[in-house]
Structures are given as structure tokens and as C-alpha cells.
Write a protein that binds this DNA or RNA. Structure first.
Lengths: 365, 365
DNA sequence: CTGAAAGCGCTTACAG
DNA sequence: CTGAAAGCGCTTACAG
């Protein structure tokens, strides 16, 4: 009696209409050949009694649950909300539910989480893998998200292209000495972004890369990155590979009395909610997560259908090569042309910008 | 054949052992009285063949799916990752899965999302309600998260107490003019936090409240909040009711050349990942989300069990009054004693603080 | 302590 | 175009 269904099941409808349950099933699913007129009556009755199909029964019968699993490396990952929202929506659009699992940064937990999902009988799985994880055969259709250079099974935005847009844009503003700020060289996403940035900057721009992870090994977590010194060395643009790093750069520079964008420019990646709220708002690159999600779900659906028809069994996988989704540069206030005279870190104008920095004038390139 | 189960079901195990399926079921669940020796053999066989129970079949039989629904007002809510992670973990600990649903800030979508979950046969639901939403009878056990002043069915941290800790701390530092920064006066959470802050500050401290929503109505989204002017008026501490607002305050002040915490202090709420990464790192208040989640799940379990035993049917609800979870003040670098001379917004020392602002020395009060 | 039987609600060949 | 029947894999009274 834990169930709160309005009560009516197929048999009830069938009885009420004096037909068989099979006919009700066929009428409702539109599969079997039922007379249009009967279909109408069945539909009407179903609506009348507030019929809600039992997904459990259907799952038992068909072997498909209509549920997908979403495995995240670390739910506290700032990009997670965007991913989860996009996936949930894309799945709902094709009638699927989404069960979440968190691997808490731990690879053992990731395996555990995957197994729990499998035990729940999910029809397919979306995995945002932990860095350095190889997703092996998990025994159900899998789509891997967000690591474009991983071969096979992968759906992702074109991070390299996003990087190129940033590089080109900074070069066009006249920056000649750019510091790229990444977290870890082992991240495929960050590698792709860096490659793009460098390509976009071109060979005439001097550029160096700073890994926050390495600085932290020496100075501890969330330490200063020494950006004031870099600015003094003549770097006029700081291209962070995530908004988290960009925010860190922005506040560190401001803290040191270096005005953004008057003295140096800062940009990020991901268009997280925080990037538009800070002052000055951050120039960033947005990936079309909705499209990524749609592609991932579509790929999964293809495999699931194929699995159901032919008997390819467990070996089936999402086979399409990385689907590429364009990225979009959002130019906001944290970037601008460099000063002709490279500034030291002392003299500047605190009130150089007008207090009203509405983002209404956002430019999309 | 969409199923990838290792194959063996209860009948297979029963056959292999020459016993009945009922016995296998009883042995595995530990319910029926089966001889210890037989239990051993059944367990061994199950492990040997890699038996995975069919949750679908169990659900059909028992009317319980072992799945909970998590309804979120807006997945892009910065607090969502923490909530989702805590809930997923707490649910997994009691053998439950978590299906997510996003109401995308829309109240119609929220209803839709709730219905979708119900149709999937979830055993219970956790709702982080949209502001101003009244969660009526949804036809399954419900626990409401995060709005402490909502009566009944609610589990949440003690936001009022968190506010009081901030207020007391700022007063103890010597601040005598404090600006509270909230988003919207309609938020129950924010109201509670404000009440606490004011109480903690005591009657001798002058304090004013700024609502970002109201400022934005005039100046547009993400506009400046006019904090530099407030600093000039003598406000020395800015107590934001969320880290998002705190970050906005921090960068706006820095942007205007006002040094934090040398000239003014800034604090937030929620301990989001961003608050520890910026410079100076933000003093904030952390709620013990794990405990909130545990309480919520426990309350839900209680109702679900009761529902299964007695036949209280659909009316059953989480009845316990707001469970109170303590909040924890994390003192970081964005707060300090006020300057004796209230500063104007011009002269200050850009390099007053040492570049290495490791958060290792975090103080917990 | 163990087993035979019924049934959860659906879908799917197979007859008619 | 419609129906009778079997069965997905489990659990739960009920006998023995």
C-alpha cells in the first residue's frame, strides 16, 4: 500500500470497457492494430480514471527501465549544475529519467557508483570521468562527456576552438604577452583549450603557461599565484582555462592594486554564474551544454535501440567519433586593449570605470 | 536482451542448488527462517554466478522502487552541488537511488517535474522549493529542504544561528556600522539569516540592509551595488547573505580601489568553492549539509516504513518540526578589525598584505 | 526449516 | 481488428 497510484490499472480499464487488457495496452501504446474508435474510448477512459502506467511492470516485462545513470567525478565541480541540468532536460525530452551518482573524486568510489547504477537496471550511462580514468566496459551503453581527446564514446564541445577564439580575440586587442593559467597539465580539456589559445594568439605573441597545481604544491592550497609579479614583467593578459581560475586571477590582481581591465585583462572559460556577477564581469567562453547533452542522449538512444533489436549484447557502445559542439566567446568587461606603456604595479586610477557595469552590452563573437 | 545481467536469476540459483526459489529469496533477504547452512550455500552460489537481483521485479512485487526524487528549483543554483552530493550520499547509505528533476525556476515546470517523478513510482521526494512555492499534497512522502521557517515537513540548518555568529563576530572585531546585503526580502532563508545577524550585532551597532534585487530593478542585472559610496559613508563591514553576493561585494570594492580587509570587511554564507579561492578568501558560514541530508532521508524513511506497515495511505507526511542543524563560521581573510579612521575611497596601500594568503590558518569559532 | 502457488501490471507473440 | 495466455523475476502468506 506504499503505492499512491490513483488505483486504476490496465485490467480495470479493460473491464470498464469490456475489452481485453491486451487491447488496452495496444491502444495506449499505438502499437497493435486497434480500431481508431476503440483507441479513442480507451484513451478517454484512461484519462478519466487517471491511469498511470506502472513503470516497474513495464520494466520487468521489457527489460528496460527508462532510466539513465549520470556519473559525476565530483558533484561539487562547478560545472556540474550546467551538466546535470542539460542532461536531465535532454533525457526528459525522450522520456527518460536520470539517476545520479557521485564518485567523490575517488576512482574506487566511481567504480562502486557505476555498479550501483547497473544494479538498478539503468538502460545507459553518462559519465563525466575523473581525470586520468579509463572507462572500460561497464556492461551497458555508455557515453563519455567532456573529454574531447578521449577516443570513442565521447561527446563534447570543441574546447580547442573555444581556446582559439580567446587567443584570436586577445591578439586582436593588441596583447603581446599573455599568461595562460591552467590547473593541471594532465587534463585533456585544458590541453585542448591551451592548444587553441596558442594557435589563436599566433606566433608573434609571447606566451607562458602557469599551472596552479604546481604553485600549490609549494605554497599550499589556494595560495597566491604571483600574478602581480607577472604583470610587472609585462604580461597584459591572463587567460585562465576556467572561471574558477579566472576569478582567482581577478581578485588576486585587484587585491594587489592592479586594475582590471585598465591595466591587465582577465578571461575565463565556462560561463559559470559567478563570472557574470563579479566586477568587472568576466569575459568567458560558453559551451552549448544543451547541445552536448542532446548529442549524448541521442547517441545513447541509438545504442539502446540497436541493442533491443539485434542481439549485439553487452559489447555495444556509443561509436560515433567525438561530436563537436561549437563554443561561444562572451566578451564582457574584464578584457580590453592593453596599455601602450606596460604598467608597473603601483600607480593606477581606482575610479577609472563607471560604477554602472551592466552586462547588457554583452558582445558575442 | 537489452539486459546485461550476468544471467542468473533466483530460479537458476534454486535449480542449481536443488531448492525452491522461495528459499533462495528468504536466504538472501535473511527474512524467512532458513537454516544457517543453507543460507551459506545460497549466498555462495549467488556470489559464484554473479547474481544481481532484479529491482524491477522487486518493485513490481513490493510496490516500492527504492528510489527517491530530488526536486531542485534551479539546478544552476550555486548551492545545488552541495545539496545533491549530500542527498545522494545519504540515500545511497540506506540503499536508495536518487532521481533528479529540475524545475528551472518555473513553478509550472516544478509541478510537471514532480508528476514525472511520481509516475516513475518513487517512494519519497525531497524538494528544495522555489521561493514562494507552497508544496501541497503531492501524493507521496515529502521532505522539504532548506526553508527553516516553513512549517512542517521541513529539514534545514539553523540559518538564524549562522547569522548570529556572523553578527557577533563582526561586533567583536569592533565594527560599528554594518551593511547587510541580501537578494530578496521574500526569501525565508535570508530573513532568518538577517534576524540572526542583527541579533548578533547587538543594539549598539548601526546597520542597514541592501537588497540587490531592488537595485537591479533600477540599474539592470549584475549592476554595481554602490558599495564604494557606502564605504565612504562609514560602513566598515559588508555582511552578504550568500557567497555569490559576497563575491560581488568583494570585487566591486576592489574594483573601486577599496582594499579588503584593510579598509572594509566582507563576509558571505554557504562556503561555496569560490569563496575559498578568491583573494582575499572569504569569511563565510558553512551549513552541515551532510547532517541536513541525513535528517531528511531519515525522516522520509520513517514515513515510508510507516506507510508500508499501517495503511495510512497517501496522507502520510514528514511530521517532525524543523530539525535544526548547527552552522559553522569559517573566519578567513576577508574580515578584520575596522580602521580607527574611517577611510575615504581614495588613499590606500595596494601592497599592504603579503602575497601568500594560504588558507591553512582557517579559524573555526 | 522448506516448498508450491499466487500475483504484482505490463507486453508480446499467437490465434481467431 | 480483438482476445486468451504466457511470462518478465521477485516476495509473501500459507501449508507441510
Amino acid at each position: 500500500m506504499a503505492n499512491v497510484r490513483p488505483g486504476a490499472n490496465m485490467s480495470a480499464i479493460a473491464a470498464a470497457l469490456g475489452v481485453s487488457a491486451a487491447t488496452v495496452s495496444n491502444a495506449l501504446s499505438g502499437k497493435g492494430r486497434v480500431s481508431p474508435e476503440l483507441v479513442q474510448r480507451v484513451r478517454a477512459k484512461a484519462a478519466e480514471v487517471g491511469y498511470v502506467p506502472s513503470l516497474a511492470a513495464r520494466a520487468l516485462r521489457t527489460g528496460r527501465t527508462g532510466v539513465l545513470g549520470l556519473v559525476l567525478p565530483d558533484i561539487s565541480n562547478p560545472l556540474f549544475p550546467q551538466i546535470a541540468q542539460a542532461i536531465e532536460n535532454a533525457a526528459a525530452n525522450v522520456g527518460y529519467g536520470v539517476l545520479i551518482a557521485d564518485s567523490r573524486g575517488d576512482i574506487a568510489t566511481q567504480t562502486e557508483a557505476i555498479n550501483r547504477l547497473i544494479e538498478r537496471g539503468i538502460d545507459g550511462m553518462l559519465i563525466v570521468p575523473r581525470r586520468g580514468t579509463r572507462i572500460s566496459d561497464v556492461g551497458c551503453p555508455v557515453a563519455v562527456l567532456d573529454t574531447p581527446s578521449t577516443p570513442g564514446n565521447t561527446v563534447s564541445a570543441d574546447h580547442w576552438d573555444g581556446g582559439m577564439q580567446v587567443g584570436r580575440y586577445l591578439a586582436s586587442l593588441g596583447h603581446r604577452k599573455v599568461l595562460i593559467i591552467g590547473r593541471s597539465p594532465t587534463s585533456n580539456v585544458q590541453s585542448d583549450r591551451i592548444g587553441g589559445v596558442k594557435c589563436g594568439l599566433g606566433s608573434k605573441v609571447e606566451c607562458d603557461t602557469l599551472w596552479s597545481e604546481k604553485v600549490e604544491e609549494i605554497h599550499g592550497p589556494n595560495c597566491m599565484l604571483g600574478l602581480a609579479e607577472r604583470a610587472a614583467q609585462g604580461f597584459t593578459a591572463f587567460a585562465a582555462l576556467s572561471d574558477l581560475l579566472a576569478l582567482r586571477a581577478l581578485t588576486e590582481l585587484q587585491h594587489a592594486g592592479i586594475s582590471v581591465p585598465d591595466m591587465v585583462s582577465v578571461s575565463g572559460f565556462d560561463d559559470s554564474i559567478w563570472s557574470s556577477v563579479v566586477s568587472p564581469s568576466l569575459t568567458t567562453v560558453r559551451q552549448d551544454m544543451a547541445t552536448v547533452a542532446d548529442l549524448a542522449i541521442a547517441a545513447l538512444m541509438r545504442v539502446i535501440e540497436a541493442d533491443a533489436d539485434a542481439d549485439d549484447a553487452a559489447a555495444a557502445k556509443v561509436t560515433s567519433d567525438p561530436d563537436r559542439v561549437p563554443m561561444q566567446l562572451l566578451v564582457r568587461q574584464s578584457t580590453g586593449a592593453p596599455k601602450t606603456a606596460v604598467p608597473g604595479a603601483t600607480a593606477f586610477h581606482p575610479h577609472a570605470r563607471h560604477p554602472n557595469n551592466s552586462t547588457a552590452g554583452e558582445v558575442k563573437q
